[in-house]
Simulated scan of single mutants.
Amino acid sequence: MKVDNIYLAGVGTCLPDSVTTEEAVAKGWYDADERERSGMEAVITGGDMPAPDMAVNAARVALERSGHTPDDFGALFHSDTHHQGPDGWSAPHYVLRNTLDRPVMALEVRQGCLGMLASLELAAHRLTTPGTPDAVLLTTGDNFSTPMVDRWTASKLFILADGGAAAVVSRRDGFAKVLAIGSVSNSSMEELHRGGEVMFPPGITIGRSLNFEERSQYWRDQWAKGITPPMGHFGESVAEVAERTLAEAGLTMDDISRVCHVGFARGPLEDIFLEPLGIGLDRSVWEIARRVGHTGAADIFVALERLHTSGQVGAGDRVLLIGAATGMEAGCAVVEIVR
């Protein structure tokens, strides 16, 4: 979807202290061979900080940078990938109360690690509707330091990290102009992340941990029995959404200065993102990702903030924001830094 007059007016993050993977190996949390394969150097861990508070802290930074006041906002979209607090309670309204404190819509976007990009797409649609207020606040926060998750072994694709991010989307002005945004899904692959788990009762209600590796092993076992799992390479969806969104922006991959992607380990990052996009590590944000980990939906905006505030991108640079989620779905946005 080509976008006109939609901007990122401010971005903020909340990143607690980190634990090195060297320390994790020494303490027996992380396998030494896996550390070598992953290339990961450190992971952000949140201790006992509630995930919504990470979102609030990030949002306050983004709001201060945006130049907007609370009266400018018509909605707040909060995304998350892990449990936020009391069951049945509304994390989006907690974030709203502690940021804008306005009687506007506060919506939870359950789009997994694609949550912030999906929220940006929703915000773009809203802001192109005449008569709506000029800004939308996007927030996310996750803390995986819970008893039912082992961040170090839950998946070989990544190490789960804790953190928050926020962005102010505006129709007035901003440091980056959104040129195009879109998504593409392949629902035939949804079963890959379901594995052999029954859907009711939900696993978390009976004490089952979040473990993607167990579900992957289920399909390896099925394959050994002659049962073919859902087939497909997720990199194809990544390449498809990037090519389409770039074309809508009137650009090609050669016009992109940097790519902000999810915080995967090096092998999966290259296989699912970099090779399908036809780029090397030099245009990626690997040097950021390997010291942060996979924060869920925050990854892409953590990287964008680092690139912009450190001066690694400046006026005239085009940046590709791209992510993925279980389902399977890939999302992409093209932004141009304007100041």
Rank of each mutant, 00 (worst) to 15 (best):
A325H: 10
N98C: 02
V149W: 05
K156F: 04
T146L: 14
E23D: 10
S257F: 10
A59K: 08
Q111T: 11
L269H: 09
G10T: 03
T13G: 06
H261Y: 15
M148K: 12
V25Y: 01
I337G: 09
I204Q: 14
L63V: 09
K225H: 13
M54G: 07
L192I: 11
M253R: 10
D33I: 11
E214L: 04
I159V: 13
I288T: 10
S183Y: 04
D142Q: 03
T295I: 06
G67L: 05
V168W: 12
A176M: 03
G112E: 06
P103H: 04
I44C: 13
P70E: 08
T13E: 05
V302A: 08
D162W: 04
H83S: 06
I159L: 09
G323C: 08
W29Y: 14
L179Q: 10
R194S: 13
Q84M: 15
M1F: 09
Q217M: 06
F234C: 11
D150M: 00
E36T: 13
C113I: 07
F234P: 03
G327R: 03
D255E: 10
R172Y: 05
K2N: 13
D255P: 04
I272T: 15
G207F: 12
V136K: 05
A9C: 05
R60W: 02
Y218K: 09
R151K: 14
N57A: 11
G327F: 03
V259I: 11
E23Y: 02
T153I: 00
G74V: 09
K2R: 15
P230G: 02
V178A: 05
G141K: 13
A180T: 07
H93C: 14
E191H: 08
F77C: 05
I227M: 08
W89K: 12
T21E: 00
G85F: 14
S209L: 05
Q111H: 15
G226E: 01
M199N: 08
I6A: 07
D254R: 03
D282Q: 08
G195P: 02
S145K: 01
T13M: 07
A118I: 04
E214S: 10
L120D: 02
A51E: 07
G296S: 13
Q217D: 13
S38E: 00
H82W: 06
P130S: 05
W219S: 08
R172E: 05
V285Y: 01
R102V: 11
E243N: 08
L76E: 15
V334A: 07
A135D: 08
D162G: 04
I159H: 07
L127V: 07
D48K: 14
F158G: 01
A24E: 02
Y218W: 14
P268R: 06
V61H: 13
A224Y: 10
Q217G: 04
G235N: 09
I44G: 05
A224I: 01
F73Y: 15
P16E: 04
P202T: 12
T21Y: 00
A124D: 06
D299V: 02
I206Q: 07
P230N: 05
P103N: 08
S170K: 08
D4A: 12
L320I: 00
R171H: 10
